[in-house]
């Protein structure tokens, strides 16, 4: 099996790598780039724990090959914010009980980021639909929906 040289931007940094062509994007991020915030939860594209942004669009990295992201710009949860400079969604998830065990949290943050980039002032039903590709077993989704709504309201001045 041949490898492929890929060149991409991950969390603002340029990355060049040689990957096996059957390497999943999720494995590439976790194992090759040590970005373990991207989680493996089902590896069948249902749970959304492995969600990342590719060129701004939220995708499931377990349903993508690393070879496919050549030339793209990626954001993983590690690229959202850092200590002292958290992303508003990270702040809001913390403040509104948008997480408990935290395993699903990176995926939800990225799905929510994608939503708010397209729809800065979503209704609750739109928030729930936008998060329907992510599973959480702890929060009952209430804290998550509250967190996303709150970011929208505070940045939208409602």
């Amino acid at each position: 099996m041949s490898g492929k040289r890929i060149s991409l931007i991950v969390n603002g940094e340029s990355v060049k790598a040689e990957v096996l062509v059957n390497r999943l994007l999720s494995d590439f991020l976790r194992d090759d780039l040590a970005l373990t915030g991207t989680k493996r939860g089902c590896e069948t594209g249902v749970c959304g724990a492995c969600s990342v942004l590719v060129d701004g669009d939220v995708v499931k990295s377990c349903l993508s090959l690393a070879a496919q992201v050549d030339g793209k710009t990626l954001t993983t949860v590690e690229g959202l914010g850092r200590i002292g400079d958290l992303h508003p969604l990270q702040e809001s998830f913390m403040a509104h009980g948008g997480l408990q065990c935290g395993y699903c949290t990176p995926g939800f943050l990225l799905a929510a980021a994608d939503l708010l980039s397209r729809n800065p002032d979503p209704q609750d039903a739109e928030i729930r639909e936008a998060l329907s590709g992510n599973l959480c077993r702890c929060t009952g989704y209430q804290g998550i929906v509250d967190a996303v709504r709150n970011v929208a309201e505070s940045t939208h001045g409602n």
């Binding site: 373990t36 915030g37 991207t38 590690e78 990270q90 403040a95 935290g102």
Partner: peptide, 15 residues
């Protein structure tokens, strides 16, 4: 917020 919330939202909690 939970005391573990920040490291979890940063994706830096180690499972």
């Amino acid at each position: 917020p939970q005391v573990s919330a920040q490291e979890k939202t940063l994706g830096r909690a180690i499972y």
